[in-house]
């Protein structure tokens, strides 16, 4: 079986395990432990499809000599020539990633996985519920929705973070908040003297969020227990379960459904996910995994 074939441009068209080279254009520190990488295609990764993705998909990012990790795409799908990834520096690879500088190179495989049902939600109210770093893959949704804002009803973003210092994309949140066509509700788990906003878990925002539960699609991304309680609140408000979508996180290694590390019930999160309709994972959602 032929796994690698060199194309005219020197790209490997068939080997899905071979990363393409992208150049680091910018490293932005978002919070004390979270950063954003902006990447532009290197010579080997140029092409019309370079950087195209659906909101909710992820890439495998490879820090050479260190390792590879799955990171969701947090950029604008309307600007495919520029890949944007936001992540926390919590492990060996992401800590090394944070040390990368402008002009450096990184390996990219992807995009992989399913995206959010942004097109299918047209005509509905859209409720985005994010916890912590879970805002990153939902930012792409906001960009896409804002590009065709007239196709949606009310658009509500509910965002919970650990503290005010941990609020991701703060400047954008403030800009979105100033718009008349977005409802942005933010809460933090731990208050501080300089925080005049809401304190408490993100689930408590659902009761007062302005949307019609019967004509809304909800997209959830955050820790699983947060999503579980968020689903409970959405269902309590009357939203049908089939209109709730979750982004699941498992230990993705190959990202092409071969290694089985990300198995979740009968599904591989890297292929059938990471975005699932709630009914597809409901049974597994609170199951204990050995």
């Amino acid at each position: 079986m032929e796994l690698v074939r060199e194309t005219d441009a020197g790209r490997t068209a068939l080997d899905p395990m071979l990363p393409q080279l992208w150049t680091i254009e910018r490293v932005r520190q978002e919070t004390h432990d979270t950063f954003t990488l902006e990447l532009t295609p290197g010579r080997s990764s140029m092409g019309t499809a370079a950087g195209r993705f659906l909101p909710g998909q992820f890439n495998m990012l490879y820090v050479f000599g260190v390792g590879e990790v799955p990171i969701s795409i947090s950029g604008d799908p309307g600007q495919p020539g520029r890949l944007v990834h936001t992540t926390r520096a919590v492990g060996m690879v992401t800590r090394a990633m944070r040390q990368l500088k402008r002009g450096g190179q990184i390996g990219v495989r992807g995009p992989y996985g399913t995206g959010w049902p942004v097109a299918a939600a047209q005509g509905d109210d859209l409720v985005l519920v994010a916890g912590g770093i879970g805002l990153a893959p939902l930012r792409s949704v906001v960009y896409q929705v804002l590009a065709e804002r007239e196709k949606y009803g009310r658009v509500v973003l509910l965002f919970g973070a650990r503290s005010a210092a941990d609020l991701l994309f703060r400047r954008e949140l403030e800009a979105w908040r100033s718009r008349f066509d977005l409802d942005i509700l933010v809460t933090v788990d731990r208050g501080s003297a300089d925080w005049r906003g809401s304190v408490g878990v993100v689930t408590k925002l659902i009761a007062r969020a302005p949307f019609d539960p019967f004509n809304a699609t909800a997209l959830l991304c955050g820790p699983e227990i947060m999503m579980r309680y968020t689903v409970d609140e959405l269902l309590r408000r009357g939203m049908p379960a089939g209109q709730v979508y979750l982004s699941m996180e498992r230990n993705m290694k190959c990202a092409i459904g071969l290694c089985g590390h990300c198995q979740f019930g009968a599904a591989f999160v890297c292929q059938q996910g990471p975005v699932f309709p709630y009914p597809a994972v409901e049974r597994l959602f609170s199951a204990r995994e050995g």
């Binding site: 919590v90 916890g131 770093i133 650990r162």
Partner: peptide, 12 residues
């Protein structure tokens, strides 16, 4: 209880 769990502490 959810607040006590420090939900946002480890997700990557």
């Amino acid at each position: 209880r959810l607040q006590l769990m420090d939900l946002y502490g480890t997700r990557t």
